[in-house]
Design a protein around this nucleic acid. Structure first.
Lengths: 122, 122
DNA sequence: TCTATATTTTGATATTTCTGGAATCATGGA
DNA sequence: TCCATGATTCCAGAAATATCAAAATATAGA
């Protein structure tokens, strides 16, 4: 049952538009952004935007809140943290100390845009 | 270009069989497991197994190595760490200190099987 | 109510991904 | 060589996803 939740989240993020949306919302923080702003920023037709926002919501990765005529969306950080925990669960049989240093270790120095660039991906 | 890499990794993990494979390999550590053992453990037909292992390899999430007649697969932890960094990059506009405490924070207490269960997913 | 704005839902088509049996390839041992 | 084992590739049908124009819905203000 838990893995279904994880698969929904991973599948939701595994798409160009939705990944862009999610990363925008991570940057925006708890305040989030209006649908219209997101559509404009990413250049996505309104119907497509709704489709993808809905996908992210069903996956529990973002939340919706109304402010007048605008609908704001914000990232749900707890879900992401839970997802990462699920993926690395029981790493090295639960004995990460028996593994090489870089294995089972959390990412470092990745809060400012250095992640997944050439040096870490090769 | 970077986001294509992330999408490949996320899409690879967003599938029941592949997620099961990856999590098995995370537990197995750097030594990895033989294809046959994986097939038997998950009850997947050989052709399907190859298909999915290949997907994970193309996504850079696992590596292959031969030992006699057996092919061993092992998780590539650096790629996972880079992926997590990419997803949480520039969180709260790069000022996580201005956000509530649980936002932008790395997952905690998730090395032993507690992640993505009811208390963290709600 | 009427109109304008913001967003979602519908629906039909196009594209991609998944599945697993059969054939093929690679290795090690007799 | 020949055979057995371990694993991959090929293939075609089945299933799931993506796209976006058009219609529908929700809200605010005159």
């Amino acid at each position: 049952m838990e893995s279904k939740i994880a698969i929904a989240a991973l599948g939701a993020l595994a798409h160009d538009t939705r990944l862009g949306l999610y990363r925008l919302l991570v940057q925006a923080g708890p305040e989030g952004m209006a649908a219209g702003t997101l559509a404009e920023t990413l250049g996505v037709p309104p119907s497509s935007l709704s489709f993808h926002l809905n996908d992210l919501m069903h996956a529990g990765l973002i939340e919706q809140r109304r402010a007048g005529r605008h609908l704001f969306y914000a990232a749900d950080f707890a879900r992401m943290n839970a997802l990462v925990g699920f993926l690395t669960e029981n790493c090295c049989g639960g004995r990460p100390d028996l593994c090489p240093p870089t294995v089972c270790a959390p990412a470092k120095g990745t809060k400012n845009g250095k992640a997944l660039s050439r040096e870490s991906v090769g």
